[in-house]
Write a protein that binds this DNA or RNA. Structure first.
Length: 498
RNA sequence: GGCGAUGUGGCCAAGAGGCUAAGGCAGAGGACUGCAAAUCCUUUAUCCCCGGUUCGAAUCCGGGCAUCGCCUCCA
């Protein structure tokens, strides 16, 4: 049973989808007037992980993420840069995909844009006007908030609460200061479309209602976004969509917490944001993704480079155990027959029990409102047990010729477990054969460097065999200064870039 | 002012009434190693404060204190 925290009810609820085989998800995407920053990346990674988990549980997903490409901020920036607003937006959408692909985010099924859904938006507004939920004044159309009885049900506010705070723009045209624009009359020369009310463009909230209804219909499963969207954006989406359709809009509302910097919200207006592409110059995408999932998605997450560095060291442990597993499997399949002493049957049995336990606890963690922090802890536990197991069976001294099959089989099972973990969390990229690809540094992909390293290691090995420790250490220390780490293992030395 | 979230070891962070309070980073000791690295083992917490409910509370309730968010564009 999968449980989801629903902002609408403020409770964890059992997931029951509209269609038993398919789950429909709408995620609010960015307003594209800049490269995405880490705060933008969080919901993308989080809800991608939600989707990955649901997929692993056998659901088909219909996953929609919009782009807001018609908006004041885009228009203003385009004016500054003397560009066409839609061309500017299109540019940042291309750049968006570069960042998102780097973060190993599975592509949505559709990426609807406001500019491509003006007819649907106008139709929805017309419907609202017909029903008396909206009214037009001087070429603009406003939503009549007082007409929607449930206004405030998502964010837990009442109209009176809001009235008192009243940091709302004063606009003489509105019947109530809390009414919000569905259609904005165009200023002269501005980006606009024809409509029954004259030239103009959509207000901010109507796009998501229109596009979600178009692609997912009423009563779809999950609507997600950052918690700052709860009010007014999502509240208004509900009001519009439900006033028009007279049916429930979305069933589960999910909101992720913020990224903070020095405990303050990372945002464009505070100018304390870090672009994903800049962070990726310093840290691997796996590290960034691992960091974003290291905390429960509803909690705030503080950003600084030291924290990422700590996360990276943790991730290295996972990588080490994975590589050790791969190497061992390779050694075993080359030898075809192997060692393993008589105690191994019991060791294998114990290890097998643990593997089953890890699989179960990982699943339980994810099923409980997508507790990735706990799921990651299970992965660490599994890595430690795997290391201990490999140590116990002492694969280093591959000599004897018994029990090859059970050992090989159980290591394959461990491998599959790790692949499953990764399939859900999406930390490491996988190739076509769904093998984990540890992103290597450029120099490790360079054949010349590889050949030279093989040579250097052979020379050092010669020195070690002659007990010429001075030369051996000199080579290792010098390489370290080049950020190349040498590790001596029973199977020989290996190297990696740090 | 209204609404909401959070406060757990040096740092990060799970746990939401009952086994010794997960996991990671950092630190210490040990095993392994020619020395290292990697790895394994051992080791660090009366859970912000004060009351209350309960046989039993980090977990529920009340009251403080502190931090943060939303109420204006923001993921």
């Amino acid at each position: 049973m999968i449980k989801i925290y629903n902002t609408l009810t403020k409770n964890k609820e059992k997931l029951q989808t509209r269609d038993p085989e398919q789950i429909s998800i709408y995620v609010c995407g960015p307003t594209v007037y800049n490269y995405i920053h880490l705060g933008n990346a969080r919901p993308l990674v989080v809800f991608d992980t939600v989707r990955r988990y649901l997929t692993s549980k056998g659901y088909k997903t219909n996953y929609i993420q919009n782009f807001t490409d018609v908006d004041d901020k885009i228009i203003n920036k385009a004016r500054e840069e003397k560009k066409e607003p839609l061309a500017l937006a299109a540019f940042y959408i291309i750049e968006y995909f570069k960042d998102v692909d780097a973060l190993n985010i599975i592509r949505a099924d559709h990426y609807p844009r406001v500019s491509e859904h003006i007819p649907e938006i106008i139709a929805l507004i017309q419907k609202l006007v017909h029903k008396g939920s909206a009214y037009d004044v001087k070429g603009s159309v406003y939503f009549r908030v007082r007409n929607f009885a449930n206004y405030g049900k998502l964010s837990g506010r009442t109209l009176d609460d809001l009235q008192v705070g009243a940091r709302v723009e004063i606009n003489e045209d509105k019947q109530d200061p809390l009414d919000f624009a569905l259609w904005k009359k165009a200023q002269t020369g501005e980006l606009s479309w024809d409509s029954p009310w004259g030239a103009g463009r959509p207000g901010w909230h109507i796009e998501c209602s229109a596009m979600a209804l178009k692609y997912l219909g009423t009563g779809f499963d999950i609507h997600a976004g950052g918690c700052d969207l709860m009010f007014p954006h999502h509240e208004n989406e509900i009001a519009q969509a439900e006033a028009a359709s007279e049916q429930q809009f979305a069933k589960y509302w999910m909101h992720n917490g913020f990224i903070t910097v020095n405990q303050e919200k990372m945002s464009k207006s505070l100018d304390n944001f870090f672009l994903v592409r800049d962070i990726l110059k310093q840290f691997s995408a796996a590290t960034v993704r691992f960091y974003l999932l290291s905390v429960h998605y509803r909690s705030p997450l503080d950003f600084d480079a030291q924290k990422l560095a700590a996360i990276q060291r943790g991730l290295e442990r996972l990588i080490n155990s994975w590589q050790l597993l791969e190497e061992t499997l390779k050694t075993l399949s080359n030898q075809k027959q192997t060692l393993v002493n008589n105690a191994d049957a019991e060791i294998n049995r114990q290890f097998d029990i643990k593997l089953q336990y890890f699989e179960k606890t990982f699943n339980t963690a994810m099923a409980d409102d997508f507790n990735t922090a706990l799921a990651i802890a299970v992965w660490f536990d599994a890595a430690r047990e795997l290391n201990a197991y490999l140590h116990q069976i002492n694969v280093a001294n591959l000599k004897a010729t018994i029990n090859f099959t059970p050992t090989f089989k159980i290591l394959k099972k461990a491998q599959q477990l790790f692949l499953n973990f990764n399939q859900v969390l999406g930390i490491f990229k996988t190739d076509d054969a769904s093998r984990i690809v540890i992103s290597k540094s450029e120099i490790q992909d360079d054949h010349l460097v590889n050949n030279l390293m093989t040579l250097i290691i052979a020379i050092r090995q010669q020195a070690r065999e002659n007990k010429d420790w001075h030369t051996a250490d000199m080579i290792r220390d010098s390489l370290k200064k080049l950020a190349i780490m040498i590790e001596d293992t029973p199977q020989g030395a290996r190297w990696k870039k740090r």
